[in-house]
C-alpha cells in the first residue's frame, strides 16, 4: 500500500454478513499483516434486512479518526447501498458492485467492477451465505489491500470447522474472479 490510510466500505443489507466480512478483513490486516486497523459498523434495529454498512480502515500508522472520510473501496451488495454510498467514494476509488442485485450502476469517476457475486455464491459454491466471503476474495485480489495469505488465515481462524472448507472455497473463488475481472 502506498497511501498512509486506506478506507474500505462494505455495504448491503442486514444478514449479508458484512460486519463479519469487515472483522475478517480487519483481522487479516491487523493480526496477520501487521497493520493498524479499525472496523466500525452502522446498522438499524433489524437483525435481517435494512441497510447495513461495515467500515474498515487500514493504515501503517496509528489511526486517529476511526470512520471513513472518503472510501477508497466500496463494496455494494444492494442497489440501495450502491446509490447511497457511491457519493462518498474518492474520485479515483474502486466500486465493486454485485450485479445480481445492483442492476443500475451510478455514474462514477473511479474504477467500476461488476460481478454477479450472489449468483456465484448460490450456483458455484452452493450457499448464498458466502456472498460476503467471495466479495472479500475479489477485493483482496483486485487491490492487494491485505495479502492473500493473511485473509486466508484470518478466515480459517474465524470459521468453525464444519463450514471452514466451504468458506475457503468461496474465498478462493473470489480470488479467481478478481484475477479476470475487468474495469467497465
Amino acid at each position: 500500500m502506498n497511501k498512509e490510510r486506506k478506507e474500505i466500505c462494505l455495504s448491503g443489507s442486514g444478514g449479508q454478513g458484512l460486519i463479519l466480512a469487515g472483522i475478517i478483513l480487519a483481522e487479516a490486516a491487523g493480526i496477520y499483516d501487521g497493520f493498524e486497523v479499525v472496523q466500525t459498523q452502522s446498522y438499524g434495529p433489524e437483525a435481517r434486512g435494512g441497510a447495513s454498512r461495515s467500515e474498515v480502515i487500514i493504515s501503517k500508522e496509528k489511526i486517529d479518526y476511526p470512520k471513513v472520510i472518503k472510501s477508497d473501496i466500496l463494496l455494494a451488495l444492494t442497489q440501495q447501498s450502491c446509490d447511497k454510498y457511491i457519493k462518498n467514494v474518492s474520485e479515483d476509488g474502486i466500486l465493486l458492485a454485485d450485479s445480481t442485485n445492483v442492476l443500475k450502476v451510478p455514474s462514477f469517476t473511479g474504477k467500476i467492477y461488476q460481478h454477479p457475486i450472489t449468483d456465484d455464491a448460490i450456483k458455484v459454491i452452493g450457499n448464498q451465505l458466502v456472498t460476503n466471503i467471495i466479495s472479500l476474495g475479489i477485493i483482496v485480489q483486485l487491490t492487494d489491500i491485505v495479502t492473500r495469505d493473511a485473509i486466508k488465515k484470518a478466515l480459517s481462524a474465524r470459521m468453525p470447522a464444519r463450514i471452514k472448507e466451504l468458506n475457503i472455497k468461496a474465498l478462493e473463488h473470489g480470488f479467481k474472479i478478481g484475477e479476470k475481472l475487468k474495469i467497465i
Binding site: 469487515g22 493480526i31 479499525v38
Partner: peptide
C-alpha cells in the same frame, strides 16, 4: 456507541 462497537487491535 462508536467505540463500544468499534474493533481495533
Amino acid at each position: 456507541e462508536v467505540i463500544a462497537h468499534m474493533r481495533e487491535k
